[in-house]
Design a protein around this nucleic acid. Sequence first.
DNA 1: CAATAGTGATTGAAACCTCAACAGAGCGTA
DNA 2: TACGCTCTGTTGAGGTTTCAATCACTATTG
Lengths: 158, 158
Amino acid sequence: MQRTAITPRWLDAEQQVIWRAFLSGTNRVFLELDAELRRFGLDLGEYEILVNLSESPDHELRMSDLADRVRQSRSRLTHTVGRMEAKGILVRNACPSDGRGVNARLTDEGYALLVEAAPYHVESVRRVLVDVVDPDDFVALGRAMAAVADADAPTEAD
Amino acid sequence: MQRTAITPRWLDAEQQVIWRAFLSGTNRVFLELDAELRRFGLDLGEYEILVNLSESPDHELRMSDLADRVRQSRSRLTHTVGRMEAKGILVRNACPSDGRGVNARLTDEGYALLVEAAPYHVESVRRVLVDVVDPDDFVALGRAMAAVADADAPTEAD
DNA sequence: CAATAGTGATTGAAACCTCAACAGAGCGTA
DNA sequence: TACGCTCTGTTGAGGTTTCAATCACTATTG
């Protein structure tokens, strides 16, 4: 990247207020969710792993597939899954169809933990976000975040 | 907290789609911003420290005040500021009016770094969020996140 | 004016994440 | 078959964050 001088297109006052609300609001959401999940010895990243496994056939997913779904680096997922395996939440097995692959599968204990935590988690999501936001704004929020998530990846050729 | 059984108020299908878009979208935003700031040896947390100091009289703020503004724990701020001080970005001085306090103040180098990074940062914010979201949705997003940020702290008496 | 409680900031250890390097398996092609 | 390339997943080192404990100073109380 050439760090040539660029002409800054600064945010106007309203945009800046919105942007800072975004920083504060998202921070609040994740803090509260983590705090609630901590009661179950989980954080949001681990909870998402549980959810994605629980929604898959045999409660099982390839590591790389799981990594994509929970938006974690493979390395991070390996570490996290290793800790979860040590806690008995899931197990890893060689993937039968691809010698390189590894499947992570929920144990009964892991599934039970999810079942236990989920009601409290969804209650947190409501309390901190869904219930405090105007329904129309909530829908708009969804459109906005979907647009962000689905936007083309930035070209690396800058 | 009593972990008495609660009746889950599950999210409906649309709410769930929105919630997952929120997780994906916010993740995308923060990943891109960190990637851009990395060119300057910063992450978003450090950048926010720079911004808040730069907007304060004498480019100086009490540690606790700064911690509140950037929504970091005091411990985390101490560590982060320590590293930034080692890099020459800011300095710490005893607070003259309160023997317990410590002021963090931007150095000229630190301010110069902010001036250098800011245009690229704002460009990232536009590229990943402002420019890809419908303007009306962006305003709604601001209302939603402000509502989240300003909502009463949850009662600890549950 | 002590004694006590409260506030501001730091510390160090443990937990966690990132990054680059690596090993093993599959794929393509000659 | 053999070679190189890609893909999957792991590893370990180093850096960062969290958590609980601590120290120093201020405020409050009797």
